[in-house]
Every structure is written in structure tokens, then in C-alpha cells.
Computed example of a mutant assay.
Amino acid sequence: MTSQTDIAPDMVQGLKDRLPTEAEISSAAHAATAIAVAMELDGGLKVSGQDGEPVKIAPAVGELIIELLGHVSAGNMVTLVPVSAMLTTQQAADMLNVSRPHLTKLLKRGEIKFEEVGKHRRVPLPALMEYREKKAAKQEAAMQELSRLGQEYDQA
């Protein structure tokens, strides 16, 4: 078994700041499959607790673990954020894949709700997800309209 001292220092940091290695991708893929099979066979996931007694992990939690492993096995960086989380402007910008100054403009225009904590702005995760969903819906509507216009043009 490999201990953390056998691992390069840059590999000890979590997957929120770097892409997974090939070994981590492979490990995650195998683990996701094994957990899915175990859950299907047992109606949940069972692991050994500190005292060696089996601990059953609820199916909803097992599904969350499988989803997490699926992202890692796809080679993605992963950060877990509680739904009730208040994000810094940099964290929110990273989640939207935009610059922090651009996010700040969105906040000032009122497109995303935020709270002031001292001199800092904090963005509730649900507000960020709401903005993301609205933006995706607008993009989808625009694509549908472009498609419709393209078909109209082709028929003319």
C-alpha cells in the first residue's frame, strides 16, 4: 500500500486544483464500477467501520459517491460544495468559467444575487446555479431560433 509520504507533494493536494493523474482516473473508474455493482447486489453500500463492524451507506449517498468518481474518471477537477455554501467571488467566477471582474459586473447589474460580508461579496450557491440555468435556457432558445431561421432561409 502507498503512503502519502511515497506520493509526490504536488499529488497530495486535492483534485480541486489540478487534473487527476492517469492512475487516479483509472482508480476512480474501477471504484465507481465496483461500488455500483456492490450497491446493486446489496441494495446499498457496505463498508467496514473502525471496529470492523459493517456500516451500510444509504443508496442516495452511494449514488453521490459514484457520481463523484464518474467526474474523476472523466479526467475532471472536482470540488464538493454544500448547497448552502456562500462562495467568494473567485469561487463563483471559477464555477461559471468567467473572470472575477466579469462576475463582479454581473453582481453589480443585479443578475446574480449576493450578500455583503464586511467589504467582501459572497454569492449563495443557489443564486449562482439559478443564473447558470437561466443563461443556459437563453442560449438554448437562441440556438432554437437560429435553427428555425436557418430552415426558413433554406426554404426560401
Score class of each variant (00 low, 15 high):
Met1Val: 14
Met1Cys: 10
Thr2His: 12
Gln4Trp: 13
Gln4Thr: 12
Asp6Tyr: 06
Ile7Pro: 02
Ala8Ser: 06
Ala8Pro: 02
Pro9His: 07
Pro9Tyr: 04
Met11Asp: 13
Val12His: 09
Val12Ala: 08
Leu19Asn: 06
Thr21Ile: 07
Glu22Met: 13
Ile25Gln: 08
Ala28Phe: 03
Ala31Glu: 06
Ala32Arg: 08
Thr33Glu: 13
Thr33Arg: 09
Ile35Ala: 04
Ala36Asp: 07
Val37Phe: 08
Val37Ser: 03
Met39Phe: 04
Met39His: 04
Glu40Asn: 12
Asp42Ser: 12
Gly43Trp: 13
Leu45Asn: 00
Gly49Cys: 10
Gly49Val: 11
Gly52Thr: 07
Gly52Met: 07
Glu53Cys: 10
Pro54Arg: 08
Pro54Gly: 07
Val55Leu: 15
Val55Met: 12
Lys56Phe: 09
Lys56Ile: 12
Ile57Thr: 03
Ile57Cys: 02
Pro59Ala: 06
Val61Met: 10
Val61Glu: 11
Val61Gln: 08
Gly62Lys: 00
Glu63Trp: 06
Ile65Leu: 15
Ile65Phe: 07
Glu67Tyr: 06
Leu69Glu: 00
Leu69Tyr: 00
Leu69Phe: 02
His71Val: 02
Val72Glu: 00
Ser73His: 03
Gly75Val: 08
Gly75Trp: 02
Gly75Gln: 05
Gly75Pro: 03
Met77Gly: 07
Thr79Pro: 01
Thr79Met: 06
Val81Pro: 03
Ser84Trp: 07
Leu87Trp: 01
Leu87Gly: 01
Leu87Phe: 02
Thr88Tyr: 06
Gln91Tyr: 04
Gln91His: 09
Ala92Trp: 01
Ala93Gln: 04
Ala93Val: 07
Ala93Lys: 01
Asp94Gln: 07
Met95Gln: 12
Val98Cys: 09
Val98Pro: 02
Ser99Gly: 14
Arg100Tyr: 04
Leu103Lys: 01
Leu103Ser: 01
Leu103Thr: 02
Thr104Glu: 12
Thr104Ser: 10
Gly110Trp: 03
Gly110Phe: 04
Glu111Asn: 09
Ile112Phe: 01
Ile112Arg: 00
Glu115Gln: 13
Glu115Tyr: 12
Glu116Lys: 14
Val117Tyr: 02
Lys119Tyr: 03
Lys119Met: 11
Lys119Gln: 13
His120Asn: 12
His120Leu: 13
His120Thr: 13
Arg122Glu: 07
Arg122Gly: 03
Pro124Thr: 06
Leu128Glu: 03
Met129Phe: 09
Tyr131Thr: 05
Arg132Ile: 02
Glu140Ile: 09
Ala141Gly: 05
Ala142Cys: 06
Met143Ala: 15
Ser147Met: 11
Gly150Glu: 15
Glu152Gly: 05
Asp154Met: 14
Gln155Tyr: 11
